[in-house]
Write a protein that binds this DNA or RNA. Structure first.
Length: 502
DNA sequence: AAAAAAT
């Protein structure tokens, strides 16, 4: 299906065309008409499916009627709000938005932490129709009264499951409760944990569901390999693989910031152009590293899960799990960095004896067997850990230089009737976090005073004036916090790791 | 048990 057939305007089609896109991806073909119709959308879309354009393009089409460069900034209220879990993803969406609005007088800006607030505030004051934000900084702007959200028509929650995992759910709920009720909500998520469904039930109106790939599935284009190796030999094996497989570009995932730093140092010593990216790096360094990786200057990007989701590095051929991820969902996201947009990719996981549990969880979630193999010269020798680790289950399954040996499709399909997660007992709610009890007290706060000094002085002369503007001050013209008080469940802390086994 | 995100 071509973009032209999807009912997009010439200005948008021209920008899309210049970026080299002609055919819409499946998610785009399904989502664009739906978003154009104004309905709420619940989309199960993996990364690399063209998700960003699937929501940006129809949003631009819907906002086109507001595109008028000649009116004053006050006439450019925020019409579309896009929330992203990480700063890098927000940045990418921002870059896309700028590209797609090339021929439309619609303005967009990106708002996230780690950067000075002032330039963001200045941008917002100039008037923008589209804001892409991370939750924390957005709430900061709301609190500082440097952003008004009372004219938001469309809200997008990108990577909603990620936001959940990161404990943003309260922030998201809070932001959503501050938006006009009359709006369109688009929710994108790779997996649908119960908490996501609840969020949808609470804040969306009769959403249409669009699913592109099976939930929790991995991309068939990605060849997945698991190498059993002693933990002490991982670095040597990685160096070997980078050379032997002639990896021109690879993201290597670590579990911690410290091990990411350590590994990038070691790899540099081994002569690889490596650089680490994680949340303890300054935002500027993160962007810089990402850019030099995209440009090819850095060949090995050693990353924590900050880079696991959403990063769009075109034609990335290799992903290595240097350490198995803590949650199997992260595995899906990590290897989703390769094999994007139809290209093929290879995902290699290095599994030490103490990581067998993670490996099992991955096989279970993705409903496939990933038999551990060994690489010549890197066979494991650790005995004690191996007995408790690699032991019985994988005995006889290891092979040298064997093919990945994926299970035949039919067999995999058969097993898909396995018991669902709902069988597990419900977790009890966590107690309110003691360090921030002010959250629930703060929530039902008074409407914000958005008035300028001139208005305030007018109010002093005419008390009626104050009543008029006070209504405008309440976001969306409504005093929503009252409602929250009646629904205390909304303020409960998130239940962490809904998907995690055990 | 860790990472991310507001400072």
């Amino acid at each position: 299906m071509s973009f032209a057939e999807l009912g997009l305007s010439p200005e948008i089609l021209r920008a899309v065309d210049e970026l080299g896109y002609s055919e819409a991806t499946p998610i785009q073909a399904k989502a664009i008409p739906l978003v154009l119709s104004g309905r709420d959308l619940l989309a199960a879309a993996q990364t690399g499916t063209g998700k960003t354009a699937a929501f940006l393009l129809p949003i631009l089409e819907r906002l086109k009627k507001f595109a008028n460069p000649s009116v004053s900034p006050a006439m450019h209220p925020v019409r579309a709000l896009i929330l992203s879990p990480t700063r890098e993803l927000a940045d990418q969406i921002g870059v896309n938005a700028k590209a797609y609005t090339k021929y439309l007088p619609l303005r967009s800006t990106t708002v996230y932490g780690g950067m000075n607030m002032d330039p963001q505030t200045a941008e917002l004051r100039r008037g923008v129709e589209i804001v892409i934000a991370t939750p924390g900084r957005l709430l900061d702007h709301i609190q500082q009264k440097t952003i008004q959200l009372n004219k938001v028509d469309v809200l997008v929650l990108d990577e909603a499951d990620r936001m959940l995992d990161m404990g943003f759910i309260q922030d998201i709920r809070k932001i959503m409760s501050l938006l006009p009720k009359q709006r369109q909500t688009l929710l994108f998520s790779a997996t649908f944990a119960p908490e996501i469904k609840r969020l949808a039930a609470d804040f969306m109106h009769d959403p249409q569901t669009v699913e592109v790939a099976r939930q929790n599935s991995t991309n068939a284009q990605v060849e997945q390999l698991v190498y059993a190796v002693d933990s002490g030999r991982k670095r040597a094996l990685l160096s070997h693989l980078i050379r032997e497989r002639e990896m021109s570009q690879v993201i290597v995932f670590c579990k911690t910031k410290i091990s990411a730093d350590q590994l990038s140092r070691d790899l540099k010593r081994d002569g690889h152009a490596a650089e680490a990216i994680h949340g303890d790096k300054a935002q500027s360094a993160r962007l810089e590293t990402l850019n030099s990786f995209k440009s090819g200057e850095v060949k090995v990007l050693v990353a924590t899960d900050v880079a696991a989701r959403g990063l769009d590095i075109s034609e990335l051929p290799f992903v290595v799990n240097y350490e198995m991820p803590n949650s199997p969902e992260d595995y899906v996201h990590r290897i989703g960095r390769t094999g994007r947009a139809g290209a093929s990719g290879v995902a290699i996981s290095l599994m030490s004896p103490d990581e067998v549990k993670q490996h099992e969880a991955i096989e279970k979630l993705t409903r496939q067997t990933l038999p551990p193999q060994t690489v010549n010269g890197f066979e494991r020798r650790e005995s004690s850990a191996a007995d408790s680790g690699f032991g019985s289950r994988n005995a006889g399954r290891e092979r040298s230089d064997a093919r990945p040996a994926r299970e035949p499709r039919a067999e995999r399909a058969e097993r898909s009737e396995r018991p669902e997660r709902s069988e597990r007992p419900e977790r009890s709610e966590r107690p309110e976090r003691s360090e921030r009890p002010e959250r629930s007290e703060r929530a039902p706060r008074a409407p914000r005073d958005l008035r300028d000094a001139a208005t305030r002085s007018r109010e002093q002369r005419d008390p009626q004036e104050g009543l008029k503007v006070a209504r405008v001050g309440a976001i969306g013209g409504r005093v929503l916090p009252q409602r929250q008080r009646e629904v205390p469940a909304l303020l409960l802390p998130p239940r962490y790791k809904v998907n995690q086994e055990r």
